[in-house]
Every structure is written in C-alpha cells, then in structure tokens.
C-alpha cells in the first residue's frame, strides 16, 4: 500500500504479529498437552511435569487401550457410520440441490420455502425420538442415517454452486438431446468437484463427531461409536478415581490420565490428520455458503 510506515503503525504491526502468534499457540496448546500426557510416564504425570512435550516417553497407555480392544471396535463402527452416512448424505443432497438449482422449475420457490422452514423450526427432541422408535429403527444405524439425509445448510451451498455453472454448457448438451440425469452426471458433477469435496468433508466430520444420536438410539455396547465409548471411559475413570483408584481394567502403574488422554487422541487424530490436506476446499465451501447466507 504505502511505502512510508509511521512509528505508530510499526508498533501496531509488531503487536499484531505477537498477538496472533499467541492466539495460534493457545489454539494448539491443548492438543500438545493431551498428546504429551498420553505419551508420558505415570510418575511424570502425577508429579505434574508434563506441559508441552512428553516426559519419559512411552506407549504404555496406547498398548493398554489396544489390548482392551473396545476402542478399536468403536473405531470400526465409527468408520462404518461415517462412510455410509456421508455417502447417503451426498447422494441425497445432490438429488434435491440439482433440481432446485434450475431457475425455471415450476414449484421451485414453495418447495424451497418448505425446506428452509425446517431449518428454522423443528418438532423437537422428543417427537423425533418417538418417530424413530415408532419406525422400529432403534439400535440400528438407520436411526442415525435416515433422520439426517440432507442438511439444509449444505444443500443451499451446493445449490448456489450449481446455479453458478454457465447455462451455455448445459444448453449445449440439451441440444444434443441429453436428458437432465445425463447432464447432471456428465457435466454438472464433474464441474462441481470443489463443492462435492467440501460437503463430503462437512458431512464426514459431522458423522465422525456425532454423539447425541448414537447415545439415544444405540443401546448395544458393541455398536457404539468412538465419542460415546470415550465418554463412557472418561466417566468410568472418574468414578474409579473417586472410589479407590483401582480397577477399570488398568494395568498397574498406569494412571487414568494417561489412558484417558490416549483415548482422546485416538478419537480426535483421524480428523486432524485429514484436515491440512483438505483445508483449501473447506475454506472455499464456507465462502460459497456465505455468499448466499
């Protein structure tokens, strides 16, 4: 902008850099701390020596969890819930966003209003629960997948993207005699890879982190997902901590904090690993959404 930088501005820039560095540090410090706890020795944890880096590095806590096996089953379940759920979401969202992106479609406005209204008002927790139970979906993953086929917010993002595809491309295909389905599969979808990637990720993150629905709809212990299993473990540890400090399937000389931290890391890490690679898509997707609101 301007070559001349006053003293006041220089102070502002330096303070700004320092402040933002601090913010970034605060944002990631908790992760460093929990990872360090999961890799430190019990002695170091109890005597409060663990801050940013592991002290007396060891994999004991992870070994403990893998031998126990429950968290691995939960992880397998979470992968199933996430993959199938995301697939259903994407197909469902495309099926409704594509027709609604066509400006000349008769009935487009009222249909859109009816859909957007569900974003502003809902029957509430209990009526949803009654519906799922009445349909006989309890304790199956369909209880998770079916009520959440389309997120209206994501559908609006996809629809806005479709609306911005040049009409000329679509018309050219239609003159060649292609029907709407062909246009969707051969022209619209290949042009929409950024938004498809973004929404796949939005949905997948949602499924991976889903807690509430699993908690209320899934009863069998062997069907539970990672977050719910993690919560149970945390609660169990807290109980044993209050009582005797023994039990909970812990090996000797293993403090709950280490195992708890290891479980937290196992639950959080897969999402955090994919994140850096897909960041630019995420950002793009949010911006598409914000254009339309």
């Amino acid at each position: 902008m301007n070559k001349r930088i006053s003293v006041g501005e220089r102070v502002f820039y330096i303070a700004n850099y320092i402040f933002l560095t601090l913010c970034a540090f605060v944002a990631i410090f908790p992760f460093f701390n929990v990872i360090s706890l999961s890799l430190s020795s019990s002695r170091a944890i109890v005597s409060g020596e663990v801050y940013l880096l592991p002290v007396e590095f060891n994999f004991g806590a992870y070994q403990n969890l893998i031998e126990d096996g429950q968290l691995l089953v939960a992880m397998k379940n979470t992968v199933i819930i996430t993959v199938v759920g995301t697939l259903i979401n994407m197909v469902g969202t495309i099926m409704v966003a594509y027709p609604l992106a066509k400006r000349t479609l008769i009935g487009r406005k009222p249909i859109m209003s009816l859909i957007v209204f569900t974003m502003l008002f809902s029957g509430g927790m209990i009526p949803n629960f009654i519906l799922v139970k009445t349909l006989g979906l309890m304790d199956t993953y369909w209880a998770l997948w079916l009520p959440g086929i389309v997120s209206v917010y994501n559908m609006i993002i996809m629809k806005s993207f479709f609306e911005n595809i040049p009409d000329s491309l679509i018309e050219a295909a239609q003159i060649d005699g292609a029907n709407d389905i062909y246009v969707l599969v051969r022209i619209v979808l290949p042009l929409s890879l950024p938004v498809l990637a973004t929404l796949t990720l939005f949905y997948a993150v949602g499924w991976w982190n889903n807690y509430f629905n699993v908690m209320i709809y899934i009863n069998s212990s062997e069907k539970l997902s990672l977050p719910v299993k993690l919560m149970q473990m945390i609660n169990n540890f807290n109980d044993t901590l209050l009582q005797s400090g023994e039990g909970a399937g812990l090996q000797e000389d293993m403090v709950p904090e280490a195992v708890k931290s290891a479980a937290i890391v196992i639950t959080a890490i897969p999402i955090m690993c994919v994140f850096p690679f897909l960041q630019k898509y995420f950002v793009k997707g949010v911006m598409i959404g914000s254009v339309k609101g």
Binding site: A27, V34, L37, M231, I234, K260, S261, I264, M272, F275
Partner: peptide
C-alpha cells in the same frame, strides 16, 4: 486457528476437564 473446530464435543470436554 481452524484446528479446534474439527474435534468433537466429547474430545473438547475431555481436554478441558483434563
């Protein structure tokens, strides 16, 4: 700054309580 957005509430709760 984006990273914390992607963890679940259970993980957040666990970390905060820890």
């Amino acid at each position: 700054l984006y990273i914390p957005y992607f963890i679940s509430w259970v993980v957040l709760g666990g970390i905060v309580i820890n």
